[in-house]
């Protein structure tokens, strides 16, 4: 299964440039059911890797239930190829979902219909985003931060898990360098979204800018769950819906917090719980164990040596260990490309 996907992907490498305007053709949209016609799309045969990818042995996490935060773990966690070497670039971009055949929809629908569809598609993940947004707003106020930090973070960063993390870091005035590194590492997964996010369907430059800015886990997961069906209005509408759930939830949380008589102690555990679930979702096979061990090693050393900045040092140390691991493996298997 994975080998087949690898072949398809290596054929397509030459045609990719989703960020460029080369493929902007008036009236063109990713229409359902056309994925099997090479040349119909800007990426020939692109639909094929999805429709021919029958049963990937099931990573249903982002498929049936587009759970807001599990999407974080899905793309990279699911890039664990059973057979092919871990360095196959194709594995990196293996679609995170098991796609059913796209249902037939009316061809060339109106802009309003597309927007409505986009909003409708955002409901599943939005259902999770809103309550967590409320919890976020509550947490911000109860931590003692100014209320505007909640919508501020949600608008400037627009990345749920790192925002929750930053609340705790900001309260104690963590150095900006640590904040920058933490943001970089926690959000690093977004780097991989560009590979299969259908940005090319968004044509207006400003809309394109927004679409890139709003490329959150949920947006990626929902877009990847229905490949080949996206138009510009649909995609951007979905992303805007997500942002309104998130920012709105934060504002509601802030509002609720102002009515609460006292502190509800312990809400910050929501962050720990979130990361626990995310770690569980990312660790789906025994192949992850070496990484876990390296992370444990790095963080333990950091706790021992620099307890005051254990997070910063632990993350850096873990990265360093991974780089060393890569170099070690490349040296051992130079022919494995």
């Amino acid at each position: 299964m994975i080998a087949g996907v690898t072949d398809l992907w290596s054929d397509q490498r030459s045609s990719n440039a989703p960020g460029l305007d080369l493929f902007d053709q008036p009236g063109q949209s990713d229409q359902p059911g056309h994925g099997d016609e090479p040349g119909r799309f800007d990426q020939p045969g692109r639909g094929d890797e999805f429709s021919s990818w029958e049963s990937p042995g099931g990573e249903p996490a982002a498929c049936a239930e587009v759970d807001s935060e599990t999407a974080l773990a899905s793309p990279a966690a699911l890039a664990t190829p059973p057979a092919a070497s871990a360095t196959a670039p194709a594995a990196l971009v293996a679609p995170p979902v098991m796609p059913a055949a796209p249902s037939a929809e009316p061809v060339a629908p109106s802009r309003r219909h597309e927007i409505a569809t986009g909003i409708r598609l955002s409901f599943a993940a939005g259902l999770g985003m809103f309550p967590i947004g409320v919890a976020f707003g509550l947490l911000v106020v109860q931590s003692g931060l100014p209320w505007w930090v909640a919508p501020g973070l949600s608008i400037f960063l627009f990345a749920g898990s790192v925002e929750l993390l930053l609340v705790g870091l900001m309260v104690v005035g963590t150095p900006l360098a640590t904040i920058a590194l933490t943001t970089l590492l926690v959000n690093f997964r977004h780097v991989f979204y560009a590979f299969s996010f259908p940005l090319r369907v968004v044509r207006h430059p400003l809309a394109r800018l927004y679409s890139v800015y709003a490329l959150i886990d949920e947006a990626y997961a929902v877009s990847a769950a229905r490949p080949g069906t996206w138009t510009g209005p649909r995609l951007v509408a979905m992303q805007m819906a997500f942002q309104s759930y998130w920012v709105g939830g934060g504002l509601v949380g802030v509002a609720i917090a102002s009515f609460l008589p006292g502190q509800i102690e312990g809400l910050d555990f929501a962050l720990c719980a979130l990361f626990i679930t995310l770690t569980l979702d990312a660790c789906r096979s025994r192949r992850e164990i070496p990484s876990l061990l390296l992370a444990a090693l790095a963080f333990s050393l950091a706790l021992l040596l620099v307890p005051g900045s254990a997070l910063f040092a632990g993350l850096l140390g873990f990265l360093a260990l991974l780089v060393a691991r890569f170099l070690f493996i490349s040296r051992r298997e130079p022919a494995d490309a």
Binding site: L92, F188, F192, L278, P290, F299, F318, L322, R325
Partner: peptide, 18 residues
Amino acid sequence: AAMALWMPVGILAILTVS
């Protein structure tokens, strides 16, 4: 590709413990 495979679980685990 290798980083994409290895990073997530480790980073998340560190964040959890932290």
